[in-house]
Amino acid sequence: SSQSQGISSSSTSTMPNSSQSSHSSSGTLSSLETVSTQELYSIPEDQEPEDQEPEEPTPAPWARLWALQDGFANLECVNDNYWFGRDKSCEYCFDEPLLKRTDKYRTYSKKHFRIFREVGPKNSYIAYIEDHSGNGTFVNTELVGKGKRRPLNNNSEIALSLSRNKVFVFFDLTVDDQSVYPKALRDEYIMSKTLGSGACGEVKLAFERKTCKKVAIKIISKRKFAIGSAREADPALNVETEIEILKKLNHPCIIKIKNFFDAEDYYIVLELMEGGELFDKVVGNKRLKEATCKLYFYQMLLAVQYLHENGIIHRDLKPENVLLSSQEEDCLIKITDFGHSKILGETSLMRTLCGTPTYLAPEVLVSVGTAGYNRAVDCWSLGVILFICLSGYPPFSEHRTQVSLKDQITSGKYNFIPEVWAEVSEKALDLVKKLLVVDPKARFTTEEALRHPWLQDEDMKRKFQDLLSEENESTALPQVLAQPSTSRKRPREGEAEGAETTKRPAVCAAVL
């Protein structure tokens, strides 16, 4: 046999249950609850290399294929790409003598399909299967379609040439079993990697079954959420508030809700932002270029202005709740996480202390139980975000031990490091100062900020419009641009040419 590394010779191994799959997660993409704000000051410096380099560890398999027929071997997927077919160049070659004697062998292509993985959001991997055969590759009886790919989820059954000719079961060793999710959700989405997690739940990458488009699904544990919100009269209202707010909003710089499922837990389906959180971008770069800050901040102002015009105060604006559309420097941003939002009543007064301390406005800290506050709290938070983006460190921090965090904020005395700000323009610093004003009545509004000289930049605004146009074009394009080929190089076993392929839609398939 010419099988590559990772293939075992026996096809009769006992199949494990899916609970053996491991679970991976990374930083929070968007969480309903406010958790302790991640610290920006503690960015690790590059460490000196050791005298002796450690040995390379043996790579762990990321997936496993269990053979369902004699003549096929099990495969431990270690590499990122595997070709399957009769050709000797394939990493998994159909060359077992037992297999060659079967009637089905002649229906398999020289290069029938490939399984591979690509880097997705949060640097996690996504597994795909890609059909290159004349007679078809099927996943859970659905045709992939020649020249098309679809994501592979845990426990997928792979069939060759005929939908009933099941050859492998695919085990993704990095994700959960699909069966743990409600059927209504599974009918519409293929669940994938964990993108982030918080005290009350997690955010998962998923794929729409009909279109193969990526989405983010925010899962909120009702049990954990009820415990964490025990002081509230009705904890469920917080989730329902977020859903109702998101459904009503329609702005290019605000995250869109696509679906909602109320089962044992809450499942909020949101558009996916491939670039992750602004927080991670700031930490990764230490600070952002001023031109990049301007492009992002302009969009934040437009989003918050839209919220305020619609009578909504976000109340928890922070870099973790600003998501980026891509890994590119120039990209769209979207505001997310409306769990603490407040729809303005007639009095415009709110007395609930919520939000993240580092970003809270002075009037929030001094008015607990005594007075109210209004939309100006969001403008203060925007000032803190702009400060961080321009400088790479927070204006107020618990680690300045000589003054408490509350006193720093209520006095408006931010930590100004001259040598850092020497590289920032006077106009940018002036806008920061106009937003970090203790008196909410004297603080800049979103309208005033948008009129500030720093943002009178036609090149930046043109760039934003171009990015918007690109997004609109990409969302308007159909996901499947061509029909699967019906040509046949070899006959199917026991049926006429093209008899099955043309009847089945290529579900969740995307043209390369």
Rank of each mutant, 00 (worst) to 15 (best):
E242L: 05
E242A: 06
I245F: 06
I245K: 00
L246N: 00
K247Q: 05
K247T: 08
K247N: 08
K247R: 09
K248T: 12
P252K: 07
I255P: 05
K256P: 06
K256F: 11
K256E: 10
I257Y: 01
K258F: 08
K258M: 14
N259S: 08
F261W: 12
A263L: 07
E264M: 13
D265H: 14
D265R: 04
Y266G: 10
Y267A: 02
I268F: 12
E271Y: 10
M273F: 07
M273S: 09
M273G: 06
G276R: 08
L278H: 02
L278Y: 02
D280S: 05
V283K: 13
G284F: 13
G284D: 09
G284A: 13
G284C: 09
L288H: 07
E290C: 05
A291V: 11
T292A: 11
T292W: 11
L295E: 14
L295M: 13
Y296N: 11
F297S: 09
A303M: 00
V304R: 01
Q305K: 11
Y306I: 09
Y306G: 05
Y306N: 04
L307E: 06
H308K: 01
H308N: 11
N310W: 00
I312P: 01
I312S: 12
L317R: 02
E320N: 13
N321W: 04
L323M: 10
L323I: 02
L324K: 01
S325V: 08
E328S: 04
E329L: 06
I333R: 01
I333E: 02
K334E: 11
K334S: 04
I335F: 04
D337I: 05
F338M: 05
F338G: 03
H340W: 12
H340G: 01
S341P: 02
L344K: 11
L344E: 04
E346F: 05
S348R: 15
S348I: 14
L349V: 07
M350T: 12
R351H: 04
T352N: 01
C354P: 02
G355Y: 00
T356M: 02
L360Y: 12
L360N: 09
A361Q: 03
E363C: 00
V364I: 10
T370Q: 10
A371Y: 09
G372D: 15
G372R: 11
Y373R: 02
N374E: 08
V377M: 11
C389L: 05
F396G: 03
E398D: 10
R400M: 08
Q402K: 10
V403C: 00
L405I: 15
D407C: 09
D407T: 13
Q408P: 08
T410R: 00
T410Q: 15
N415V: 14
F416E: 12
E419N: 12
V420S: 12
E426V: 11
L429G: 10
D430G: 15
D430N: 13
L435W: 07
L436N: 12
L436W: 04
R443P: 03
T446P: 08
E447D: 10
E448G: 01
Q456K: 09
D459G: 10
M460L: 02
K461E: 07
R462E: 01
K463F: 05
Q465L: 12
L467K: 07
N472V: 12
S474C: 14
A476R: 10
L477R: 09
L477V: 03
P478F: 02
Q479E: 09
Q479I: 00
V480Q: 03
V480L: 05
Q483P: 12
S485C: 03
T486C: 07
S487G: 11
R488W: 09
P491Q: 13
E493V: 07
E495C: 07
E497Y: 04
G498V: 05
G498S: 07
A499V: 11
T502A: 11
V507P: 00
C508Y: 09
C508V: 09
V511T: 12
L512C: 01
L512T: 10
